[in-house]
Design a protein around this nucleic acid. Structure first.
Lengths: 245, 245
DNA sequence: CGAATAGTTGAAACTAATCAAGTAAAGTGG
DNA sequence: CCACTTTACTTGATTAGTTTCAACTATTCG
């Protein structure tokens, strides 16, 4: 039993993205073996980037599972302050809430394919239930990390942490660490969010995010021409900037 | 082993007054009908306040359900910065993680009763599964709110939001709002966390928390002599200070 | 090519952190 | 029971980091 879970968990973590850019350009893809349960009563959505799926306060009686692409969840304060709460990728779920109203707005970041299950269907399928429980655990851990970032990290640490998420298989618990040093430890990441979106995710202003990028560039940790194609010269060095190592 | 812990807990317990309003003094109790599933293979813990249950990085292969009391989950950065991630009450669950290691430290805030189910047991009981799924949804929503607080609210808003959580049946989605105005809208709350803990929860320093308390007191929103027994003169007025309304 | 959008950079303002001193309450030992 | 220590909280002065405001640059799109 525990061996089962262990090997599944392990394969989840080490698997590489199945397709080119879709998920991991955001660094949030965890494209594990995803149960594809009975497709009865499931609606499929095929959405372009920056499309709203669900508004804060909307009726939310269905379970959404991301097949491909990425989705961001955000909240607004009455005076317009926005916080992007979660960045989700393939396998992640959203749209579930205790009371029937969504507590967040959900919109695509990239063109995305999403399956929508009716609440009743979702709750009657054990395999779906299992998928949902596992993803929720993962998302809770991600929210824990993010609370630490928002509560205790400074601007550069936040931006560095964000960028590390974009590097597949790094920055998490299983970060290779300085072990891998010595060999060229370069990475290319594609930043799909605007500076404003990054700011709203990191609890900063877009100016502060821009300054942090510029600082890391000036220090030689990053290099970029177009602002969305970033080369990380030494991943470990960037990792050192996150405050977590 | 577990007996050891239990008896230790009992001997230390006498030093602290066991209050039975324990849960809601933190405002986090949601004492609904909680399924009490097959108690087989369940270990019960009876712990005094400020007792560590689980350390960040510990093996975490069991599901913990809070029956009574309250528990805080926290994380540390290598340089000692701490963030309290969640404040949990009766019915809430913790100790589950995708990989086998706990991502947080868990410790009691009040004397607490906790059931610990072995992972295998938890995963084989449909009723437990259901409980866990529901609680996780609720906790995710709470984490969403908290991310908004940490990312976008100022010091006074954070403290006001924290205090509102201590008022039963207020501050949430179902806040009565200014409707209830006119009648005396007073509340007494017992603050069980120290200023340092509140600060670690709200992403502030203890001095800033203290100043926010003092400011709200000076403005007549709060009154208190002993720093842990706070009278909220007008709940709606405090609610106005949270930034959420 | 001009307009619009996104990003960068600088200076000033402001909020919260830090440093430091002082007060209040609780616990300890004579 | 009282001085003494410890712990928790408060308050003030100063500093640091981020936000705000503003100007400017680069890129994308009709």
């Amino acid at each position: 039993m525990s061996l089962d879970v262990a090997s599944l968990a392990h394969s989840m973590r080490d698997r590489l993205p199945p397709k080119h850019d879709a998920g991991w350009t955001l660094g949030i893809s965890r494209p594990e073996a995803m149960a594809e349960p009975a497709e009865k009563a499931a609606r499929h959505l095929d959405l372009p980037a920056r499309q709203t799926i669900l508004d804060e306060g909307d009726e939310a009686r269905s379970l959404h599972v991301i097949l491909e692409g990425s989705v961001m969840l955000s909240k607004l304060l009455p005076d317009g302050r926005r916080q992007i709460i979660e960045l989700l990728g393939p396998g992640d779920v959203f749209g579930l809430c205790i009371n029937r109203l969504s507590d967040v707005t959900a919109e695509t970041v990239l063109p995305s394919r999403i399956v929508v299950y009716d609440r009743a269907v979702a709750e009657s399928s054990p395999s779906l239930q299992r998928l949902v429980a596992d993803r929720m655990k993962a998302q809770i851990c991600a929210l824990h990390d993010h609370a630490m970032l928002l509560g205790r990290k400074n601007a550069v640490e936040r931006v560095a942490t964000f960028l590390m998420r974009l590097v597949p298989n790094r920055g998490g618990q299983g970060c290779a660490g300085p072990l891998a040093a010595g060999k060229a430890d370069q990475a290319q990441v594609h930043v799909t969010l605007t500076r404003q979106e990054i700011a709203d995710y990191l609890g900063l202003t877009l100016e502060t995010v821009s300054r942090a990028f510029s600082l890391l560039k000036r220090q030689g940790v990053l290099a970029y021409g177009r602002h969305d194609d970033v080369t990380i010269g030494n991943v470990c060095r960037l990792c050192q900037c996150t405050g977590s190592h």
